[in-house]
Nucleic acid binder design. Structure first.
Lengths: 238, 238
DNA sequence: CGCCATTTTGAAGGTTTTCAATGTCAGTGG
DNA sequence: CCACTGACATTGAAAACCTTCAAAATGGCG
């Protein structure tokens, strides 16, 4: 083995300790000695834009944690309609399943780096580390509250309100993981935003145009957007 | 203390052992000796129709488990719009919160019996019983997949499809807890169904009328409904 | 039986979708 | 260097679906 390979291996084994998103991720509850063991039960994997991580109804063998990049999780209907269930960011945990089948498909948006856990091994690990089980429970509970909020967004808000909520949520999310929250970047396409908000791409585009002409947002590029008047966005949501 | 009171107390202390919904509830993972201790950290409470259990944004001090009856959990917007996040059934666990505040309001539908847990005490109990923490994690994960499905319903399905999904889901839910799944009862009002599905009461009523005239469902009473042709319902959802 | 709440039905109106065309931008090749 | 291409985004007009407003019907309960 070359010294270069040895260095890489060393670095790989140490990756949890130097992980940038650890403090926003469920593994934050582990102290340093447990962390070493923990890194042994996961593997790091890279994906490229539009690559699938898994498909809805696949047997659910793994669980995932994002270390770099973004993921969209979505459900497909038989006739081709698509609903994006969520956009995921660094620190987010995904792979939820029902009856041992994934409940959605997952796809990389741009370059992606994730930690992969074997479901059975992680499950065994949880038995020995109730702290981690509790942390995962809290994280999942948190996800559940976000999903519930989205139910209200899709059930009751009109197009303008949905867009306003969407922009503010992204801003909040970035603040939560310590990134600048204005301007914000929209890594997903307009179609993705539409499929996320239960709207068509045309409606999304029109609403963005409205916000632009009301000087509430300003587009640096079509994916880089400055919230000129966040208060006005807030007031959209009643 | 009268012997009657003593008997009641005895019965009360033993209630987990004779609980009818234990096998569908998160406490199913405890064996008999642990169950005794477990019943000590919960209290049983009764509610009547339309009584609030808690209100959204209240400090989240308790967690709840339904033993008898139904609950609706809902979010209110400032302008009075309401979205029902979920209808809950015996065995369901609720009280999810974010930043120590309940994420929704909870209200009894009809007579209700629930187990109440102090959040801190339960949390301590989880440390000592990782099995229970894992069971709660699984239950919460399961809830999350249901919420995700609902996101797709509200984001992509039209009125007829939403109603069909709703009826089939109730039927499934009843099967899951071992009840007859046809005919099914709808304990909630039409308005509740509308607020659950992101529709108006008029649209719900019209869709029910359509199903009725297509001989797909038959109303014994307005809240007791027989699925004459479940396959036709299924085909609505594509 | 009659009252009141709930549900159903009808007609008009509005928001979002659909269909179609135009505009923008990054990458490619002449 | 710039025209060309194709993907993505924006804009316009017509249509569809659901809502809103209004009225009638049903049904539980005193």
């Amino acid at each position: 083995m070359s010294s270069d390979n040895a260095n890489n291996l060393e670095e790989y084994k140490n990756r949890c300790n130097i992980c940038k998103i650890r403090s926003y991720s469920f593994c934050r509850c582990l102290d340093d000695d447990k962390l070493q063991l923990f890194s042994d039960i996961s593997t790091e994997k890279n994906y490229q834009d539009k690559q699938n991580i898994f498909i809805q109804n696949d047997p659910a063998k793994h669980l995932y944690n994002i270390t770099e990049g973004n993921v969209k999780i979505y459900q497909l209907l038989d006739d081709g309609r698509i609903q994006i269930v969520g956009f995921l960011y660094p620190g987010d945990f995904f792979g939820s399943y029902r009856n041992n089948q994934y409940n959605y498909s997952a796809e990389a948006i741009g370059n992606l780096k994730i930690c992969v856990f074997d479901q059975k091994i992680l499950d065994k690990y949880l038995d020995e580390n109730p702290v981690l089980a509790k942390e995962l429970l809290h994280q999942t509970s948190f996800e559940l509250t976000l999903a519930q909020d989205r139910i209200t967004v899709l059930g009751k808000l009109n197009a303008g309100e949905r867009i306003a909520t969407f922009l503010l949520n992204i801003s909040e999310q970035r603040k939560r993981i310590g990134w600048q929250n204005n301007p914000i970047s929209l890594p997903m396409t307009r179609q993705d935003i539409a499929d996320y908000l239960g709207l068509t791409i045309e409606t999304v585009s029109r609403e963005f145009s409205n916000l632009k002409s009301s000087n509430i947002v300003k587009f640096m590029t079509s994916k880089q957007i400055y919230l000129t008047n966040p208060e006005a966005l807030q007031s959209y949501i009643v």
